[in-house]
Amino acid sequence: MSMNKQISRFDLTERAIHWMSAISFVYAALTGLALWSHKLYWLASVFGGGPTVRGMHPWGGVLFAVSLGFMFRRWARVMQLDSDDKVWMKNSHLYAMHRDQELPETGRFNAGQKMMFWMQSAFAVLLFASGLVLWFPEIAPRSARLLAVLVHPLAAIGSIGGIILHIYMGTAVVPGALRAMTRGTVSQGWAASHHPKWFRELSKH
């Protein structure tokens, strides 16, 4: 069996949802950073000026929340952590050092990817709730707004920090991962090496 044969990893729907969330996230993150620090306010000019950024940033967030809702419906089950994942998480430093063979075999997603999914979901809920409060300061009670000005940046820091890792992994650390998100396919060798349990499942059918 040739290991260069391409197999499907993400179908068109999954890729569409992923890019919808990626684009809305980057837009919301960059416009959010513009309002986060005076030093980054120049970003507001890039995105059409302060009032435009103030008006559109929340809609970027809404789009992100919607795409995350789709993602959640699609992947929540496959992202459930099992006992192998717990062992994997405990030894995740081995993964960082590329000693993957010492870790439990992974299925469609490894424990790190699953954690990313759950953490980003949790941050998104916090961002959406606090963002809604900040969107309508004339309606929201002051106590809620005072809490939101703390929750929104904290959740954003966690979320953007996670995305820096996510983009680094997907583009630089795991060759072939980016193609899975653009074209949807990976080679059989890639699947067997990075997600052996998933590959065996696929081969059975």
């Binding site: 590329h98 680094y168 650390v173 060759p175 072939g176 990976v186 060798g189 067997a192 990075h194």
Partner: peptide, 14 residues
């Protein structure tokens, strides 16, 4: 991290 460890092995090389 990239400078120290670089990318993971590409599956095709197995």
């Amino acid at each position: 991290h990239f400078v120290r460890y670089g990318p993971k092995d590409h599956g095709d090389e197995h």
